[in-house]
């Protein structure tokens, strides 16, 4: 009888005390070929898959060595749903499943090979994707989302995003401003969805996490007039890189004359505190690093 009582108490405590959640984001560079709009040979793609799975599994093992945590991973530049399933299987992280994969298409209806995805060990209540919708300008891609069940009366709304790059065809200031505008408009769309969710789940604890490749940052002078990330701060989000020096948050190591940069962020709202955070090298799979953030 006493044993049963103790077991019951342990179960009760386990139900009431919520564990940490490990968030990760990784732009995987045209995964699994590593080449824009082009497939590689099967052997080559298989080798990339193995390397990527090793990096993901290694980061999870490192971050959950001391104590377990639920996992949410945001992935970008994924070719399709199949390569997402392959990655999750190969990583072999217990309980990790694909929650959402986008299926963005070009103007002729052919799926892009730069999809965004969410993988998680948590139960998924709702998931899907949406393209960026803007009256003034067309914005490439969109976002994948997943509403996760994080225990009694608790929900985590997750968004995986890959915002417009800084690529400008004719290298004019107009193109540059247009790119910034596209990122700002995308951020505004996410924040509008977050507001709607807040109204819908007013009675429940709603935590929100936005992860991905923002292609901008709040450090470099070239983005000083840009409101993309700052608009999240205005809506009470916090950055995974808060209080870190520039050299401590390089997510896109510099190449070909381009300096080191921070492009990949995890922005969060409604969590008590950061337990740990670490950046793992993404090479040779990707030119972006894997960012991890453990939240309580």
């Amino acid at each position: 009888m006493r044993t049963w009582l103790v077991a019951f108490m342990v179960m009760l405590v386990a139900c009431c005390v919520r564990g940490d959640v490990l968030f990760m984001t990784w732009n995987m560079k045209w995964f699994p070929s590593g080449r824009a709009d082009l497939r590689s040979g099967d052997d080559e793609e298989s080798a990339t898959l193995t390397q990527a799975a090793r990096i993901v599994a290694g980061a999870v093992a490192d971050q959950t060595r001391r104590s377990s945590a639920d996992i949410v991973m945001f992935a970008q530049e994924m070719r399709d749903a199949e390569c997402c399933s392959n990655l999750v299987s190969a990583a072999g992280v217990k309980g990790l499943n694909v929650a959402a994969v986008s299926c963005f298409q070009d103007n002729s209806g052919v799926p892009l090979w730069q999809q965004v995805a969410i993988f998680t060990t948590l139960p998924v209540l709702r998931s899907g994707y949406a393209v960026w919708s803007n009256a003034e300008v067309s914005i490439p891609r969109g976002f994948a989302y997943a509403l996760l069940d994080a225990g009694p009366n608790a929900r985590i709304a997750c968004f995986s995003i890959h915002l417009k790059s800084n690529f400008a065809r004719d290298n004019t200031e107009f193109e540059n401003q247009k790119n910034i505008h596209k990122r700002e408009a995308a951020a505004a769309q996410i924040l509008a969805v977050v507001r709607q969710l807040g109204e819908k789940y007013e009675d429940k604890k709603l935590q929100v996490v936005v992860g991905g490749d923002f292609n901008t940052n709040d450090d470099d002078l070239e983005y000083v007039s840009e409101a993309t990330i700052r608009s999240f701060y205005g809506a009470h989000f916090r950055s995974c890189f808060r209080d870190l020096k520039k050299s401590q948050k390089i997510t896109h190591p510099g190449t070909n004359g381009f300096p080191d940069a921070t492009f990949d962020y995890i922005l969060y709202r409604g969590f008590e505190r950061i337990v740990s955070r670490k950046i793992y090298q993404g090479a040779p799979v990707s030119d972006h690093n894997l960012v991890t953030l453990r939240l309580r």
């Binding site: 959402a100 986008s102 103007n107 998931s127 899907g128 919708s133 803007n134 067309s138 989302y145």
Partner: peptide
């Protein structure tokens, strides 16, 4: 392709 509504269970 803008204006496409949010799709469930992608």
């Amino acid at each position: 392709s803008d204006g496409v509504p949010v799709k469930g269970n992608a």
